[in-house]
Simulated assay, not measured.
Amino acid sequence: MSRKRRVHSAAFKGKVALEALKELKPINVLASQYEIQPNQISTWKKQLKEGVTEIFSRKRGKAKDDSRKAEKRLYEEIGRLKMELDWLKKKSEPYSDPLDLIDSQHRSISIQRQCELLGISRSRYYYKPAVESELNLKLMRIIDEIYTDCPFYRSRRMVIELERRAFHVNRKRVQRLMRLMGLEAIYPKPKLTHRNIEHKVYPYLLRNILIDRPNQVWSTDITYIPMQSGFMYLTVIIDWYSRYILSWRISNTMDNDFCVEALDEALTHGLPDIFNTDQGVQFTSKQFTQRLTDVDVKISIDGKGRALDNIFVERLWRTVKYENIYLKDYRNGNELYQGLEEYFSFYNTRRPHQSLGYRSPEDIHYCS
């Protein structure tokens, strides 16, 4: 017998999308909590961002009749929402499971109505979506550790390394998890990363260039960050000469919004001559590149088959993970944010770098 398709209310979609937008919980944790697919949450999150922009861009000047009708509908909606809010205030707690809020013994509100108010269907009692298992999350953490040590390992060698650690998994499973984590072996090959063919192609500008001062070249990238329950993505913008971290952001989805936010913050510190990145769609998007061209910054994109074009960021990922991520084993996005905030402050101001003559990045960046 085929399973009945689940229909989610607008209130439920908005609630889940808003929680995803807060970036406090990984997508897979929210998916498990609300028993929906991770891709669905990512879609709702994107729709929420676009919807907010649309609200503030609408033009005024509608007819009075339309205004009255809209006002009437608004008051009706307010009344309905107030009734729902009064009931929810008595039951809800931050990040609680909606299923726990349902009172099967309630005399006035039926279970069906309670499900509607909570934005869930009755079939949710029985529905169990396919989310990443505990084993997969453990495998992803181990794969990340192996990749940090050996970023040139492809799926075949990754399978062998996992077998040495008593994890017998097939290659297809490893390939899927690596794609989910955004990991790809670093080695010369015809096509290193997938770019959007609609995005403008920029040349690689750093070949045979001497980097000898701060704000000459900035660079960025994204990496996978494992946690106790799920994972997040981290992006940073770094100055090549001083190794100074100009900005950073975390997100539970690998979209370009958190990359653009990091870029906006970095540009408050100054302007580089050249901004270098790989061919990922987050960095070649018009939304990202437009910020740079508007301030006359030259854009450099890593060439195909160039494994070491972004080597300074790759070295940073190894440092961050071994000195912080693997040691702290963060439980959620809030802990991760606070921990990285402390670590990057230490990294910039106190951590001595051998390549910098055992001085800190801050000393080099602002005193050179």
Rank of each mutant, 00 (worst) to 15 (best):
G305E: 05
T289K: 01
D278V: 06
T268I: 03
L308F: 11
N252M: 15
D278K: 10
N276D: 12
V281N: 12
E261L: 13
A266C: 03
D257N: 12
D294W: 00
N276I: 07
V260C: 12
D294L: 08
I299N: 00
S285H: 07
G305T: 11
P272W: 00
V295L: 02
K298A: 09
R291Q: 10
L267D: 08
T253A: 15
Q290P: 01
V281D: 06
V297G: 03
L292T: 05
Q290E: 15
D255P: 07
G270P: 01
F288Y: 13
L271E: 13
T293S: 12
D296M: 11
D257R: 13
T284Y: 07
T284E: 05
I274K: 08
I311Y: 10
I250K: 12
L292Y: 01
N310K: 07
R291N: 06
T284G: 10
S251P: 08
L292D: 04
V313R: 04
D309C: 05
N276T: 08
R291M: 05
D302G: 11
G303Q: 10
F275Q: 07
M254Q: 15
F288S: 01
G280K: 08
I301A: 03
A262P: 05
E261N: 14
T268Y: 02
T293D: 03
G305F: 07
Q282H: 15
T253G: 14
V313G: 03
G305M: 05
A262V: 09
T253W: 14
I274S: 06
V313D: 01
D264G: 03
G270L: 03
S285K: 05
I250R: 11
T277E: 00
G270W: 06
I299F: 00
K304D: 08
G280C: 09
D309Y: 04
F258I: 13
L267N: 04
E265D: 10
N252C: 15
L271C: 09
A266G: 05
F312C: 04
T277N: 01
P272T: 00
D309Q: 01
Q279M: 09
Q279H: 04
P272M: 01
K304A: 04
K298V: 00
N252T: 15
L292H: 02
N310E: 04
D255V: 10
S251Q: 15
L267I: 05
I250N: 12
C259M: 05
H269T: 03
D257Q: 12
L267G: 08
N252Q: 15
F288G: 03
F312T: 08
D257K: 11
I299R: 00
S300W: 02
V313C: 07
D278E: 04
R291S: 06
I311P: 06
I301M: 14
L267F: 03
K286I: 14
D302S: 14
A266I: 02
I250S: 11
I299A: 00
D302N: 12
D264N: 13
L292I: 04
S300V: 06
I311S: 13
H269A: 06
A307N: 02
G270A: 06
Q290K: 14
K304P: 04
G305H: 07
L292V: 01
I274Q: 07
R306H: 11
I274N: 08
V260T: 11
F283S: 00
V297K: 08
Q282L: 13
N276H: 14
F275T: 05
L308M: 14
L292A: 03
E261V: 11
F283L: 01
G305Q: 06
A262L: 08
I250Q: 12
T289C: 01
K298H: 01
N310G: 08
S285Q: 06
E261G: 12
